Deep mutational scan, measured.
Amino acid sequence: MVQRGSKVRILRPESYWFQDVGTVASVDQSGIKYPVIVRFEKVNYSGINTNNFAEDELVEVEA
């Protein structure tokens, strides 16, 4: 279970941040499909630095 402030590695192959490390900004408990919002240092092609992920697409590298 990841929690706010954890450092996580992204396992979603189609993601711009695949294999990159980001910080968990928040975790939604309402039961949505992609409840974990992760914030990154670098921006993607659209200038965005956050994205939603499912918990099984993340691996915690640092608490």
Rank of each mutant, 00 (worst) to 15 (best):
M1Q: 13
M1T: 14
V2K: 05
Q3D: 02
Q3Y: 05
R4G: 04
R4A: 14
R4D: 03
R4S: 10
R4Y: 05
S6G: 04
K7C: 13
V8G: 02
V8S: 00
V8I: 02
V8T: 01
R9W: 03
R9V: 07
I10F: 04
I10Y: 04
L11I: 09
L11W: 06
L11N: 04
R12K: 08
R12Q: 06
P13E: 12
P13G: 05
E14S: 14
E14I: 06
Y16P: 06
W17M: 02
W17N: 02
F18N: 01
F18E: 00
Q19E: 08
Q19R: 10
Q19Y: 08
D20A: 10
V21C: 08
G22M: 05
T23P: 01
T23Y: 09
A25V: 15
A25G: 04
S26T: 07
V27L: 07
V27R: 05
D28M: 12
D28Q: 08
D28F: 06
D28I: 09
D28A: 09
D28C: 12
Q29V: 11
S30D: 05
S30I: 05
S30M: 06
S30K: 06
G31F: 09
G31L: 10
G31E: 10
G31R: 08
I32W: 06
I32G: 14
I32E: 09
K33N: 08
K33M: 11
K33T: 08
K33I: 07
K33P: 14
K33E: 10
K33Q: 11
Y34E: 05
Y34R: 08
Y34C: 10
Y34T: 04
V36K: 00
I37H: 11
I37G: 04
I37F: 12
I37V: 14
V38R: 01
V38I: 03
V38K: 01
V38F: 03
R39S: 09
R39Q: 13
F40K: 00
F40H: 00
F40M: 00
F40S: 00
E41N: 10
E41W: 09
K42Y: 08
K42W: 08
K42P: 01
V43F: 15
V43C: 14
V43G: 08
N44R: 04
N44W: 09
N44P: 07
N44S: 08
Y45N: 15
Y45V: 12
S46V: 10
S46D: 15
G47Q: 04
I48P: 04
I48H: 14
I48M: 14
N49S: 09
N49R: 08
N49A: 07
T50Y: 14
N51W: 15
N51V: 10
N51Y: 12
N51T: 10
N52W: 10
N52G: 09
N52D: 07
N52M: 09
N52A: 15
F53Q: 00
F53K: 04
F53A: 00
A54V: 03
A54R: 12
E55D: 07
E55Y: 15
E55S: 09
E55H: 15
E55L: 15
D56H: 14
D56S: 11
E57K: 02
E57A: 03
L58C: 07
L58F: 05
V59G: 07
E60K: 10
E60R: 11
E60W: 09
V61I: 11
V61C: 08
V61A: 05
V61K: 03
E62P: 12
E62N: 11
